[in-house]
């Protein structure tokens, strides 16, 4: 009889990592829950959760026709139920797509090496609902996708430039709460800062873009470089769903002279979308490109006067508010992270 055990000890984790490596798989660093399946004393399968993403599925070859994936999936489903997470995702090898589709998951996108599926929701429905909720027209339009952690004059410049050149502009704010500034606050700042631009609509990316799901490595430290493969998923989601549903014909990007990863991302976007992508030079101040990481550094050093030079009024007002003060305290108490 097979027994499912959760990974509790470091040596168990090491064993799983070894098992994955033997099969040319990596144990991803964002994993927060892992199970092992044993046949007597033999480790025969594993699977993991990173918040709402199931990943790192592996079943030993000689056990592959015994529905062990089904049992692991069911087990992880109950963990998600217990965590009150309804909408979830699976990352796996394309050859496994069939198995997960038989558990009612939908394929979102597929590359040579990876397939991304979702359960309990459907990206088409979610995005159409979003479109309806924000009353987005069917006319051709441009888009900007930003995390804005927090919003700087660089972001402002990008948005204003894009708004000027377009009939309509959608500003998608990364919904993932993995940054110093919470999503709600980032969203509100951008809304306030762009109030004067009448052809701009600010809306959330809702899990699907530049999230830990489509793009886990984006949220890692700079020294862990992203690979094309992971970026590709994010690009494909944008291309296959956001573009047709929101009728986007241009996406504006800010040039990123410092961040290797952001540059790499921009490059891959360009190689897949060609003319659809328009890169805007980074706004500079005192010959220094303005970036959110610079702003966070200044906040960390408590140099708010200098911050004022780099951010729009909406951001500065927010930083003065009680909410903003709390975040400042948090940033100052922590070692700096990139995002």
């Amino acid at each position: 009889m097979f027994q499912i055990k959760e990974v509790l000890l470091e040596e168990e984790k090491a064993k799983v990592i070894h098992f994955l490596h033997e099969n040319n798989l990596d144990y991803e660093t964002d994993i927060d829950y892992t199970i092992m399946v044993y046949d007597e004393d033999e480790l025969i399968a594993t699977a993991s959760l990173a918040r709402n993403v199931m990943k790192c599925f592996l079943v030993k070859k000689s056990y592959q026709d015994q529905n062990i994936t089904g049992r692991m999936f069911r087990h992880l489903e109950t963990i998600l139920e217990a965590r009150s997470i309804e909408h979830f995702f699976v990352y796996t090898d394309p050859t496994n797509a069939d198995i997960f589709e038989s558990f009612n998951m939908n394929v979102i996108v597929e590359t040579m090496n990876t397939v991304l599926l979702e359960g309990n929701k459907n990206i088409n429905q979610v995005l159409h609902l979003l479109k309806k909720e924000y009353d987005i027209s069917d006319a051709k339009k441009s888009a900007v996708i930003i995390n804005a952690n927090p919003m700087t004059l660089g972001h402002m410049y990008l948005i204003e430039k894009a708004a000027l050149e377009s009939e309509e502009l959608l500003v998608f704010v990364v919904s993932e709460d993995a940054s110093s500034f919470p999503f709600e606050d980032r969203f509100m700042i951008i809304k306030n800062a762009t109030e004067h631009l009448h052809n701009v609509t600010v809306l959330p990316t809702s899990n699907y873009l530049v999230s830990k799901i489509t793009f886990p490595k984006y949220f890692l430290k700079e020294d862990q470089l992203i690979k094309d493969e992971q970026t590709l998923i994010d690009v494909l989601v944008y291309k296959e769903y956001f573009v047709p549903i929101f009728k986007i014909n241009k996406r504006y990007l800010g040039k990123e002279p410092y961040s290797y990863n952001t540059n790499k991302y921009n490059e891959i976007l360009q190689s897949h979308l060609g003319n659809h992508i328009k890169v805007i030079e980074r706004k500079e101040s005192d010959n220094k490109p303005i970036s959110a990481s610079l702003v966070r550094k200044l906040i960390k050093r408590n140099n708010l006067e200098k911050v004022k030079k780099y951010v729009p009024k909406a951001t500065y007002d927010y930083l003065q508010s009680t909410r903003g003060q709390k975040i400042i305290e948090q940033i100052q108490s922590k070692t700096l992270r990139r995002h």
């Binding site: 529905n67 089904g70 049992r71 999936f73 069911r74 489903e77 139920e81 009150s84 309804e86 038989s102 558990f103």
Partner: peptide, 15 residues
């Protein structure tokens, strides 16, 4: 909140 019971095993169902 949804609830469920069962499994994906052959001869079983998940409701």
């Amino acid at each position: 909140m949804n609830v469920s019971a069962g499994s994906y095993e052959s001869n079983d169902c998940l409701i």
